[in-house]
Design a protein around this nucleic acid. Structure first.
Lengths: 131, 131
DNA sequence: GCCTTGGTTCGATAAGTGTCAATATCGATT
DNA sequence: AATCGATATTGACACTTATCGAACCAAGGC
């Protein structure tokens, strides 16, 4: 049998939700879908390309170049990022423009949190997640 | 609150590396391997269970309970998290204990961006932000 | 109307992944 | 040494996914 449970010593709310308490099954499912979308080097680079592009958006023609992949494949990866809420897009004339959804990235970043302040040089920003 | 501070706005430390410049192919590959490891709900819950366990570590017997999976499957997922550098483990007598590697989580969190993006500002789909 | 260009969708296929049953290993106990 | 309990590894199988070529749609320009 396993070890006997310890007295519940609840430390102060120091850390990310992932560290503070076990993730619920539902929440883990949602988060995993997003992390899985980021779990492909092509998609990560696409996301970074869009995010770092001038104006915060980029059209597919700007993205396709630089990859050794066919255009349908790029389109597929963009669709995955779209369906997980990491990217949004809009058609303007002939071209389709993509941009990132900052809140989605922020959510993932916040979940991972900074487990130990000593290992990560945290900025001045307090996690004022409540509005 | 108190966001209306002086015009000493920090112009430089605005964004994560992912937003500031396109990820290199190598870096994207490394990061994607870690994100892929998190892209499974079972692994996410395992990681959270280990991280939130008293003492910052947990033995496999503590983890297996709560999952409707066989023991080899749990062992497999733990191995994936281990091989991507998110967890470390050590055998102590009969049991094997796991703990998280804070630097790994911090790295991923940092890449995604600082959590000060004010997640409450939803609806800002207008990407007309200037860098 | 008819092309041309930019993007998406559709099948098909090869590679990868999650899961289990069976087996192996490792350490403690008898 | 023989055994037992806790984990890990192996092999197999169903299911998913990354990729491509071909077909399709949408907007302009002739």
């Amino acid at each position: 049998m396993s070890k006997q449970s310890l007295p519940v010593v609840q430390t102060e709310p120091c850390c990310s939700p992932l560290v503070r308490q076990p993730l619920t099954e539902d929440w883990a499912g949602d988060l995993a879908r997003m992390f899985k979308a980021l779990g492909d080097p092509v998609r990560l680079r696409l996301l970074s390309l869009v995010a770092s592009h001038a104006g915060g958006e980029a059209c597919v023609c700007d993205l396709s170049a630089g990859f050794d992949l066919t255009q349908p494949t790029i389109s597929h990866h963009l669709k995955v990022l779209r369906e997980t809420g990491l990217l949004e897009c809009e058609r303007r004339g002939t071209w389709v423009y993509y941009w990132v959804v900052p809140a989605a990235l922020a959510q993932l970043s916040a979940v991972l949190g900074s487990p130990d302040v000593s290992t990560a040089q945290l900025g001045t920003t307090a996690p004022a997640v409540l509005a």
